[in-house]
């Protein structure tokens, strides 16, 4: 069995843009898979943790109960949790709804919005659907987060440097150009 450190990733209330940025490390991805094994991640489509991981990379904040469970599951299985991108760090675009009461949000989306077609006239509530939280929570309000990489998305180089530093057990010192919030 491989002794390489393991990395897991997930996208909660995000847009997968941060994962795209991870792929933007280009050919360094080949180097990366020499260094690590990916465990639970959309990159390899492994759905469940099969082993303990060194790093869990989280994109997106928590907007529904499933997001919370996944995030808590990551915290349980990973030594280091990285909040990747502005949504994980501060809620991001989905957190715009934090300034509108939940009832109004759902009514706008499912009942009153100008493009809504919903003859049933109900907000969807099937048991398969995860319930939505009262607001979007940044990851650190739900679990302890060890490292924050801001950006929308964070530059590929930021992600690369963070991973390299972690894998080599070195402190992360990002140059000026690599800390960006936009």
């Amino acid at each position: 069995m491989s002794t390489k450190p393991k990395v897991a990733t997930t996208s909660l209330a995000g847009c997968f843009g941060c994962h795209m940025s991870l792929l933007d490390i280009d050919d360094r991805i080949l180097k990366l898979i020499e260094l690590v094994d990916f465990n639970k991640s959309p990159i390899n489509d492994i759905k469940k943790f099969t082993d303990r991981c060194l790093v869990g990379i989280i994109e997106g904040g928590c907007s529904n109960e499933e997001n919370v469970h996944v995030l808590q599951d990551f915290r349980k299985h990973c030594d280091v949790i990285i909040a990747l991108g502005d949504c994980a760090t501060m809620g991001g675009l989905p957190a715009m709804r934090n300034h509108v009461p939940l009832k109004e949000c759902l009514e706008e989306a499912y009942l009153k919005g100008p493009t809504v077609y919903n003859p049933g006239g109900k907000v969807p509530g099937d048991a398969e659907l995860p319930l939505i939280l009262d607001k979007v929570y940044p990851c650190q309000e739900v679990v302890k987060v060890d490292l924050f990489l801001p950006g929308c998305p964070p530059p590929a180089d930021t992600i690369w440097q963070a991973l390299v530093a972690l894998l080599n057990n070195k402190p992360l010192e990002l140059p000026y150009e690599l800390i960006k919030y936009d």
Partner: peptide
């Protein structure tokens, strides 16, 4: 804190509005 979970995060409270609006309880919590 050994679990790494934030004790201040209260999922029951966070779901209360939602449960009222869709008129069902969470199947998880």
């Amino acid at each position: 804190n050994t679990s790494g979970l934030q004790p201040s995060f209260d999922i029951v409270k966070a779901l209360r509005d939602s449960e009222t609006i869709v008129k069902r309880k969470s199947v998880h919590v």
